[in-house]
Design a binder for these strands. Sequence first.
DNA 1: ATATCAGATAATAATCGTTACTGTCAACAG
DNA 2: CTGTTGACAGTAACGATTATTATCTGATAT
Lengths: 144, 144
Amino acid sequence: MMAKYKDIGIKLTPQRLAILGYLEGNKAHPSAEDIYNDLHAKYPTMSFATVYTTLATLRAKGCISELSIDPDKKRFDPNTSDHNHLICTSCKRVVDITVPFDLTLPEDSASDFMITGSHVEFFGICPECKKNNRYSREDMEKCV
Amino acid sequence: MMAKYKDIGIKLTPQRLAILGYLEGNKAHPSAEDIYNDLHAKYPTMSFATVYTTLATLRAKGCISELSIDPDKKRFDPNTSDHNHLICTSCKRVVDITVPFDLTLPEDSASDFMITGSHVEFFGICPECKKNNRYSREDMEKCV
DNA sequence: ATATCAGATAATAATCGTTACTGTCAACAG
DNA sequence: CTGTTGACAGTAACGATTATTATCTGATAT
């Protein structure tokens, strides 16, 4: 479960609560811009910088994770538990998946790295884009 | 094997040949900046823009792939065959690996996506960083 | 050879995501 | 009550990338 500010010893401010609340249970993997746009309606004074610094703080404290899945912008995930992602290469939708196989790399293929983590991404076209034919051949060849 | 310009019907220019040659067999997964810096010595007139557009062209033609592995900048890989990456979270070194398991996702976990590709990343600390103690606790917790 | 034309390039400007800086304000401590 | 600390908004700065524009090159037709 996601840790709260009080658990990690940083001050509970309206802005931080807003971002934390926005993220909690959010499955959309929003970008900083998404977060700003959505919260701006309710908190008209909140600035971009606050969103960025708050996200950085949360990430440093391990409350959220930052995803490099989207080549254009970072996206944030309140789910810090071990899970993986399925990405629509057309609309950039990201959905969580759990991979049904064991990702332990054999010693001999690890090139002497000390392995600290792993991540699997699946790329594809989501049902909506498929239904509406909202994808190109190029989309289908994307797999970053 | 990597397709050549002549095979894909685009003009062979000195700049394109230079970038293609630089990339060929290159295992370092360089960024656009790396490429520019290294080629600039030999081709003093080549600009950033040329590097970017050439890389975009090559990518569109499927000659190279663009990696979103590094949160700060795109990196390029002449190896377009199916392979995966092992990333040092301290020095950002990227080495190729082939994963020893089958990455076919069962129907029921695919959320109705039409799957077009997959990619596995392993994160860790490379032998050099490990030996020189050139890594922090934070590095060890990075797994984008 | 020379004119023409298409595409490639250099240089630069613009854009986008992100970070740094600065002045202000509020909460709390002494 | 006053000094200190941290958070914030606003804005400037920055780095990576993309768009624009004018120039150049090389192939072809004349």
